[in-house]
Design a binder for these strands. Sequence first.
RNA 1: UGCCGGAUGGUGUAACGGUAGCACAGCAGACUCUGGAUCUGUUUGUCAUGGUUCGAAUCCAUGUCCGGCAGCCA
Length: 611
Amino acid sequence: MDTPTSGPTPAAGGAPATPAPTDFIRDIVAADLQAGKHQRIVTRFPPEPNGYLHIGHAKSICLNFGIAREFDGICNLRMDDTNPTKEEVEYVDSITADVKWLIDGWAEDRLGLKPAGRTAEPATVNGRTDYHLPATVGAGHGALLEPFYASDYFQPLYEYALELVRKGVAYVCDLSPEETDRYRGSPDRPGQDSPFRDRSIAENLDLFTRMKAGEFPDGTRTLRAKIDMSAPNIWLRDPVLYRIRHAEHHHTGGAWCIYPMYDFAHCLSDYIEGITHSICTLEFEVHRPLYDWILEQLALPRPLPRQFEFARLNLTYTIMSKRKLLQLVNEKLVFDWDDPRLPTISGMRRRGVTPQALRQFAYHIGVTKYNGLTDVAVLEHAIRDDLNRRAQRRLAVIRPLRIVITNYPEGQSETVAATNNPEDPGAGVRQVPFGRELYIEQDDFQENPPPKYFRLRPGGEVRLKYAYIIKCEEAIKDAAGVVIELRCTADLESKRGGATANRKVKGTIHWVSAPHAIEAEVRLYDRLFTVPEPDAAGDFKQFLNPHSLDVVMARCEPSLGEARPELRYQFERLGYFCLDPDSQPSTDRARLVFNRTITLKDTWAKEARRE
RNA sequence: UGCCGGAUGGUGUAACGGUAGCACAGCAGACUCUGGAUCUGUUUGUCAUGGUUCGAAUCCAUGUCCGGCAGCCA
């Protein structure tokens, strides 16, 4: 994905070259280009600003921006903001930031924006009034750029609606919402014509104008397309085009009290922006005839956009519904939209997942019309694969057990050389302090270990990574019988370069020098849900994992005091970690907070479970 | 019982009338100063039944199962 065969873009972030993806949508785009249908491909990513973006949106972003970069096109970012009661600027801002983060270094030169404040102005094309707002690509135009907004087209949309009325294919209907439902019929029973269906064009014009002027309360009238109340496709049974909402809009303020419906706004927004391929998810498939109907009725002078549908992403052990994510946030079951346990883009970013990993994941799952359920293990693999290549290795002990090397001179210390990244020799080495008193992981000692346990046991030997082989001579317990300290001896010749350096011991464990260690809060995350399909039946909240967050105080090697928020770390043998924004910069009151992005694969855990 | 769409190993995805492949997961082994990484091997699949064809996952027919659609949400 980072090196499409159709372009010379070099691999990003050291990721290996991957062939350009192919799928049925890219096939269509390639064929359309081949047939000379378009001079330039324009796609769009059109979220509604009513929540934060999640990994399902990431799939769509990768598809739409991926097509733009592979076919030398553009992908517009557009707020699909036609419902003032659900949308907020906070969401506009988070969406914009998340998109930019995800495409950075990959397709940021394909991001279609427009000068701030610009709306679609009428022009004359082939003797017809036309509205066209082509994208400005990339920054540096002097002008401040912003995303597109469907709400910037409210005036053109209103003009188009008037045209449908004048043409006699749209009418003002006085039915209440409940009556409208009843008249619509059901999937296997045709609907009935509204009693207001045959109003004169003049009356419709008058009424629609007065709707816009604010003469009628919410819910009293709608503008409807006049299509066919007996159509087998429900969306062709005189769908509502406009409804009355006396509500403040986050982008247009109080300018309007009638708002277009999705079906009316979307196809025309696509047209206005010159979109060639309007790619959406499967549930809009039945809307496509309406999408086409509206555009065709208006006899527009430029080429029409075409809609294509693909299957949205479903992932095991999580939920994707914006409504349910909002519920978790509102009910404080998670801290916020960027809670690292959430599948939101901002949550995953905070957790330490990189954009490269997300893109690689999108590449691997592909694009089809089959509505499946993707194993979260595919995501986890993409994350580990990416982090393994980029993470700086560090030593940190999450649940400390004190040990004393009795034959190491008191008061003495030294430093040992530690490899920063075995996957990247260029990353070099660092010096880590070593001394008589250390911390090791509680898990790395067992008094009565099971078979095949390679770590420390009474009388047993283990290698301290980058340092000496030690032998456990004695386990000291407290009054309750729990082991609180280990007395060990070291083979002082077994350090790298020493006489017995090549002695084989079965286990190697990590450690930290006790007097040099710095403390850090470490947040250990696990799956948010305990079942693969929390959405499947009943209340998803009953499947919340009570152990999805565990906070511990870890002892870390001193170099972690200079940890940087943009870097990724592997705490050796534990997992991948990154600095959380809750951390305070290194002052005398420094506070370090790390998030565990993901554990290392643990085949021992599997082995232990098997018993 | 209306309309639209879909069905390939456990999961996701390729094969576009010519040897069913890849990834994840699983299993077995090698290697390892991370029980990580890496490497090797390996179990498991074309929804069913007919038809066309020298040859069908692919084309046709019938059936089965699954998903979506009845907001003045998107």
